[in-house]
Design a binder for these strands. Structure first.
Lengths: 198, 198
DNA sequence: AAATAAGGTTAATCTAGTTTAACATTTACT
DNA sequence: AGTAAATGTTAAACTAGATTAACCTTATTT
């Protein structure tokens, strides 16, 4: 279900945030499993219930919403050592508003709803850990709302490039445009202006 | 520090989400205090450390960011039975990016950083409760990002009006415009178009 | 009741970003 | 290597929403 190398990667991530006893680590590992997806495959589709919170061991995903006009709006990317799920769907176990799709071949550790609840019940430290992760994600989300209001497209792009240099390398430009809330054509224009400036 | 009526209001809210024993309730109440603010007063100012998570017993607040041009961007409003704090500042105990100001005379139950930690340590149910609150806030924040991308100003306004009819009544229109990410002039135009339509 | 301040409206002008469409470049596949 | 598909660029025409500025309406204060 989960190889020694994968276990190690997950525990290494965990231990950089909380200290688990060997028993707690073993308990955690006994409850989760690993799943591999190919580039292009969907982890969650709009309308399905999101059954897992997924920890990314390797690869890259995008979470996005498709609006009434069929336009895609990218909410977030996830790479190694980050999480992905439609949390709204997961916590209520109702149909998802968002899609999650792999932009590369991707390996995930899958935490089901019941497993998460069991882990919270048995290892209070883990509930604390997840609370803190979500707190940070919420803060980041609020700050993104403000940036979208207060900054121009150019400054949002510069911020993204500075904040997520690793992600920019791996992802087609038209998806970055979608994440920034602008068209690919306009991002292209912004980039050519930036080149002229320096 | 906290009156019987105020205690009752806080416990009523709590009990609609979690079940606390009388001892746990008493412990909680012994750790918090109530503070009253007048209309216009600041609970948190950009640059200060946010020392409390505040539960709103009565009144109304706005949280906002002031950008380099001096423009105000409203992130959220809080009314009765909701929480307010600059969570980014609170969880790291570093200077706040945002301001929180009272739009009416406001009565708050104040949870300091140390008290929150103590409550988490002594009442695991409370940590669970706060985790769930933040999960929901995060989901709402992500959905707001998507709405800001996918909807026109008019549709964002209609959504706001439908979702928060009570808040709309209490708040000047120019602040709703700021929350929606548009100018007061444009919101005025949107509203007059809506009147013509029906 | 007048005066002031705070909030809201209207309209003309302007601009950041969109749309459309044609073309260029890179990547992946046989 | 050659072709198709995916990604990126450029430029002209357009639009949602911003800006400016003048005016109107409603509360609040004296």
């Amino acid at each position: 279900m989960i190889s020694a190398i994968q276990m190690e990667a997950l525990l290494k991530y965990m231990s950089s945030h909380i200290q688990l006893s060997p028993e707690e680590e073993a308990f955690l590992l006994s409850k989760v499993f690993v799943r591999k997806y190919l580039k292009g495959q969907y982890i969650v589709q709009q309308g399905d219930v999101c059954k897992y919170e997924c920890f990314v061991l390797s690869g890259c995903t995008k979470m996005f919403y498709v609006d009434d006009e069929g336009q895609e709006h990218i909410i977030m990317f996830s790479i190694e050592d980050w999480w992905t799920s439609d949390m709204g769907s997961f916590i209520t176990q109702t149909p998802a508003d968002f899609n999650i799709q792999c932009l590369e071949n991707t390996v995930l550790v899958m935490f089901s709803y019941d497993v998460i609840e069991e882990l919270y019940a048995n290892i209070p430290k883990l509930e604390r850990f997840f609370r803190q992760i979500i707190e940070r994600a919420f803060v980041a989300s609020q700050k993104r709302i403000v940036r979208n209001f207060a900054l121009t497209a150019k400054d949002r792009y510069l911020y993204f490039r500075k904040q997520y240099p690793k992600i920019e390398q791996r992802i087609p430009q038209y998806m970055i445009a979608s994440y920034l809330g602008i068209t690919k054509e306009f991002l292209s224009k912004v980039k050519s202006q930036l080149i002229l400036e320096q």
